[in-house]
Design a protein around this nucleic acid. Structure first.
Lengths: 340, 340
DNA sequence: CTGAAAGCGCTTACAG
DNA sequence: CTGAAAGCGCTTACAG
């Protein structure tokens, strides 16, 4: 008992004499004593570790994950919490697996971009605090962290228009994904605001991966040989923007000389590509850090330790990042080259 | 007792009657019973979670980490192990922090690219199984997983020579880093084998980040205005190769038309850059997965459960991946443009 | 086949 | 100020 309170500085009814405390501390140092974490967790009902559940998209964690994870890890470390990562293959099939994690090994869980259907919502473990990031629907009792994606899309398209572009293509993200829909909506609103027509032919349905962006744009180009290329392409995220640039390069079109391309997210990939991407920055890292803070507040709240967690969604602002992949349109009309 | 053995199917002296077992199982299902992980861990001395310690380089986890982590996570999930990630800022300063992790919360630890000095080696926690990946020095009692980096470098430079390049620059990684040294050595050996001179002026000391690659090459170009550019550049990793391409682009030099650039590692970045990088593939994902397997074998071994862990380093083969950033040298001599 | 008991290594009222 | 005791929720010999 004396050892426990001396080592933890915890406040019980008990006081320890200076002498005893020092004797304990000295002995602990000599023995390189480490309190056993599992015994402590069992007694405290607190593991001091947070979970991060992410779907591995196409078999691998991507740059979006990396960015958020950097923020999560930073904040968790700052609060002396460990972080354990759970890779799911599918939110639908693996919702059950989440229960296996809520067995005392974590104190709370961050759901990363969960696409959970309304009925499945009731299958979520009941007694574990959650926070979600970019959730597709509002999960009951779960605070969601998101950003103003529609506005970001609007501003990017407005920027393209200001640069002189008129025929602006949109390479869209996964259908029925809330974020992708918001970006698409922002695109249409910005066109309308600029009194530009929305042309169905300039919408390419792709997804968030490089491969999908590449395939989508490649197919479009194949189907439009000899016709004019768009002035600019607004892609639903950085990943498919990169795929898009690859497809353009294969067709002999240069970015931004022949055609401008913009992304969304500002992940590491936007900075480590040539040309660097003009994109909409979501502060993913800060959002990840915030998820940790909110989750910790929620845990403290449930423990009755005061601390109020917010209960409405937290919306982060977005910002346009102007780099090298967007410029003014070329003077001469570019046509889609015949495919090789 | 009956519940425990029925639920775990564990083999004690005890047998449970079919009836009792079924009654237990049914009750467990009805109550949605989950054994508490910490209590279980306390009794078993086994948490079923593995740690991954990584230094966050320049404030963020990078593509190298992402690649390895994908493999670690995949293998850990397959073996029903959780994975917790520890971010260190510095191997020197934070070696002590590792002790805080070896307190029962993990069963073993993967050290990712540790640069631990010889004397610090004795400060590592003694009773936790370790595996290292790309360790700078052999850690006593720790199995290291690495790849044949020197050979990879040799083959890449040989490939450049075969493409017709003669003046081949090397953008080097961090000094005193074993891997970077091996790559540099491979470069020199390949030059010697091709009877090409090693020119000190064609060595740029950079590092593994995009920023360092960019700055290194930019400075070199500034210092060589009006002089011929190299035929090709072999970079110590993909990150600095991308920085290199950015610096070349800023100077108006195109890859691979004006100059060829090769990377090393084959991280996600190599595939998501335009042009896609010709690079040396280290099977980072497989190496991460293997780290898990070896660690698990080591844990089983220490538990006396048989299972032999290897004790000499495991060396993975490398492979040249020929993509778009390397081609034959241009017909005309390129000079470094005057800086703008 | 079944169940009482001790133990894993901590924390925290509680009685002296 | 100090220490004996109970409890956190499991597992596993051990005696019936």
């Amino acid at each position: 008992m004396a050892a426990s309170t001396a080592l933890n500085g915890s406040r019980t009814s008990s006081r320890i004499s200076k002498e005893t405390r020092e004797r304990i501390l000295k002995a602990a140092a000599r023995l390189a004593y480490r309190p056993n974490a599992t015994a402590r967790a069992l007694a405290n009902r607190r593991m001091r570790t947070l979970g991060l559940a992410a779907v591995i998209d196409g078999g691998e964690l991507n740059n979006y994950f990396l960015e958020v994870f950097n923020g999560v890890l930073e904040a968790a470390t700052r609060h002396e919490q460990n972080t354990t990562v759970f890779a799911l293959h599918d939110w639908g099939a693996d919702t059950a697996r989440l229960h296996g994690l809520c067995d005392g090994r974590i104190d709370g869980l961050i759901l990363l971009a969960p696409t959970i259907s309304r009925p499945m919502t009731r299958l979520l473990p009941a007694h574990t605090p959650f926070v979600s990031l970019h959730a597709n629907i509002a999960l009951p009792g779960v605070i969601n962290i998101e950003s103003d994606e529609e506005k970001g899309a609007r501003e990017m398209v407005r920027h393209l228009v200001r640069c002189g572009h008129r025929r602006i293509m949109h390479v869209a993200g996964p259908t029925r994904q809330l974020g992708a829909e918001r970006r698409f909506r922002g695109y249409r609103r910005a066109l309308a605001a600029a009194r530009l027509p929305y042309e169905r032919d300039l919408l390419v349905k792709a997804g968030y991966t490089v491969a999908e962006g590449r395939a989508g744009v490649r197919d479009w180009l194949r189907g439009h040989a000899g016709r004019p290329v768009p002035d600019a392409i607004f892609c639903a995220n950085d990943g498919c923007a990169i795929g898009c640039i690859q497809a353009l390069a294969e067709a002999g079109l240069r970015v931004p000389d022949d055609i401008s391309v913009a992304g969304f997210d500002d992940t590491l990939a936007a900075r480590t590509t040539v040309p660097q991407l003009t994109t909409v920055r979501q502060p993913l890292r800060e959002m990840g850090a915030r998820a940790v803070e909110v989750l910790l507040a929620r845990i403290a709240q449930l423990e009755g330790a005061g601390g109020k967690a917010p209960d409405s969604p937290i919306v982060f602002p977005v910002a346009l990042v102007d780099r090298a992949s967007v410029s003014a349109p070329p003077r001469v009309l570019r046509l889609v080259p015949a495919s090789r």
